[in-house]
Write a protein that binds this DNA or RNA. Structure first.
Lengths: 155, 155
DNA sequence: CCGAATCGTTCTGACTCTGAATGGTTCCCG
DNA sequence: CGGGAACCATTCAGAGTCAGAACGATTCGG
């Protein structure tokens, strides 16, 4: 019937997929987020660890590694840094002295709040082209997908 | 007034920000996407390069590096591989023999279509928890934000 | 009470990407 | 014309991030 060859390869190009858009957008947004966090001496995974602690995840390092889907050895270095700046306490569990139990300090909660403020400030830049209802719908939909994938989501 | 200390640190936790959700979701989705691509011997950036070519971006390697926001030396290795598997032609521009001009071959277009199919298949898994209208709204919103950020978006 | 299992830590290595150095090509100006 | 400056692609070394193996300390089970 129609032999018209489109200049593009496919009727539904890769670029129209949620997966592709989420990937590319995710990396550019994360780049800005990472840059902003660097100014307060943190990396995204540090925030991730604090979020896990704040969400009431089991506080032993091994379990934190599991909830973060990350190697235990990485948790060590993250905890090292957070402890050094006074954001977390790290004590041996008296009941099982193999375990290292992490807990947010007051300063840690303040730091996490600062990260939250920073993130929401970035949100306004990133979603500037969106209307309020679209913005909220996006936030909500991402929350649903995140929860589906087992990510921490207050809301 | 109210001195009730919430168990969480902030009224608007980091996890409710679009930036945070986009980042975490992006990385988990990208992980699955990367894994799926690996089975056909590609990495996300290979697809990115093919997409750029397919979208009519200026085909010299340096300009491709600019549109992909990536170092020129990386384009070399990406093009090396794509050329080796016959997905792109790489010829010296006769008008300026410093330039290396890339172009998708037929096989390249087929490969890109395969990636598109793969991505859309993944989409259904990832967005399984969403209704059709929500899914479409997400796709559209991500497209708007991507366009805002200067990303290639057919649609 | 002793061997197996568990947790944390250290360290090595894989992987990805950038930036500097190099060689070939073109442009510009005297 | 001719020669130096600018430009493009390529190679290579190195920074950064992360996982996995190896080890020591501690606990559990028989």
């Amino acid at each position: 019937m129609n032999d018209v060859k489109p200049p593009q390869a496919a009727a539904r190009p890769v670029t129209t997929s949620v997966v592709f858009r989420l990937g590319t957008l995710g990396s550019v947004v994360t780049a800005r987020y990472t840059e902003a966090l660097a100014e307060i001496g943190l990396k995204p995974k540090h925030v991730g660890l604090m979020v896990a602690l704040d969400s009431g995840a089991p506080p032993s390092q091994l379990e934190l590694a599991r909830t973060m889907a990350v190697a235990p050895s990485l948790v060590v270095s993250l905890a090292d840094h957070l402890e050094q700046i006074g954001a977390v306490d790290r004590v041996r569990d008296p009941a099982d002295r193999r375990r290292q139990v992490l807990a947010l300090t007051g300063a840690g909660r303040a730091l996490l709040a600062e990260c939250a403020a920073l993130a929401h400030r970035l949100d306004e830049e990133v979603t500037a082209a969106l209307g309020a209802s679209e913005r909220e719908a996006l936030r909500r939909t991402l929350g649903v997908l995140g929860a589906e994938a087992g990510l921490p989501t207050h809301d």
